[in-house]
Write a protein that binds this DNA or RNA. Structure first.
Lengths: 221, 221
DNA sequence: GACTATAGGTGTACGCTGTACACTTGTCAA
DNA sequence: TTGACAAGTGTACAGCGTACACCTATAGTC
């Protein structure tokens, strides 16, 4: 009975605000994410948030760092390719959960999780034997792919949430408008019945990249 | 003398609005791009725009399609790798010119330039000999890389616009805060003096990808 | 030439946003 | 008991996209 008297709302804190913010952005999307909405979710008046975060911009910084914290760090005990594959996969999954973060991962003031992550990845590549400039190339290539894939996955959204019926209907009307574009028609007709799977697609490209990098690392092998 | 009497402001049109919108977004960024600001640039009251575009969302659709129209279509006469390299390079350049478009290229209602472009790329891959599903893989991989690279280039911005002095100063203070992250320190110190160049970086990754795809297309060669 | 329809531009207003600033309230130390 | 300080509130303002009613100039028809 030391703390809560009856009905006292649990007091706010910056981490509580941050977590609620991530949850709200996850379900409402970035467009509909507002300070006022967040305050309402927390049962509090909008201005109360400003006692715990400086402003919306800084709040977003913190939210992005939470996403970074959910990305697996490359393990020191694994072969570099599998370590990189695991962190890439977990990054894609984190961006799937928090798709509002996709365009913001590298555009905001980096937080601790961000720094830890980047440092660990670069360390993994250097330890694998990549010379400095080649490690930069390898890092840039992998991250471009990861972020770009997440973007496509969010925007194109092949066969994700909509029902089969809706999808078929939309497809039919799309195809109607596509007469002049035979290769788009091919995509619209064949892709849905090809068992397309985003995770498989991601792994395919990632493997091609990692194979290419490994070949450069071990020219003879 | 048929049309303009003295001082009559040239009448608006949807293409004139669109072009002014792209110009404004180019220089002000997406954040600061508003219907009111656009109206002011055109010397007109905000609501006048709505006689020529349905709303801001549709305006953005049109702006994105303008960016698509600046991307080179793959030529039928070139080897597929060089055709793809050229369109990828021109896509990156277009996104550099119009960095506000980076997160929106595939997220909006596709316009004619978009459709033409995608159709031509898929056609190029199919004609090169890729079976359908592999063409999808190849397309997805390339676009993910292009969009992801553009994102990184926009956000990380190694040595772009800031003066050497500013850059050095910022770097020094960054390094100070980076003691616990040796590999980030290495990047912050070595990268600036390594003659890093975004165009080179982009080509490096692109070549690795195209090589990998070509190897899959011609397993024996 | 007079009449009318229509396209283009205007002015006002509403609900939304982030947040500055002054205020109250609840908790703990001295 | 007092006083400080942290947490939450209420009001207010400028900016946003845009609905709606209005004015005006041009074009077509009789």
């Amino acid at each position: 009975m030391t703390k809560q008297t009856t009905k006292t709302r649990e007091t706010l804190s910056s981490t509580r605000v941050l977590q609620a913010a991530v949850a709200l952005a996850d379900e409402a999307g970035l467009e509909a994410f507002s300070m006022r909405g967040l305050a309402q979710d927390l049962g509090v008046v909008p201005m109360a948030l400003y006692k715990h975060v400086a402003n919306k911009d800084e709040l977003l910084d913190g939210m992005v760092d939470i996403v970074f914290s959910e990305i697996e760090l490359p393990s020191e005990n694994l072969e570099w390719t599998t370590a990189m594959r695991r962190r890439a996969t977990s990054a894609r999954e984190a961006l799937q959960r928090h798709s509002w973060a996709i365009g913001m991962m590298e555009s905001r003031r980096p937080g601790p999780a961000n720094l830890r992550n980047h440092n660990a990845v670069m360390g993994c590549l250097r330890k694998a034997g990549f010379p400095f400039e080649m490690a930069i190339h390898a890092y840039s290539l992998q991250d471009a792919y990861i972020y770009g894939f997440a973007l496509q996955e969010r925007d194109l959204g092949f066969e994700t949430s909509e029902s089969a019926g809706e999808a078929a209907q939309r497809r039919a009307q799309t195809i109607g408008a596509l007469e002049d574009y035979p290769h788009l028609v091919e995509i619209a007709t064949k892709l849905p019945e090809s068992g397309y799977d985003n995770a498989v697609e991601f792994a395919w490209g990632l493997d091609l990249i990692l194979d290419g990098l490994d070949r450069l690392l071990h020219p003879g092998g």
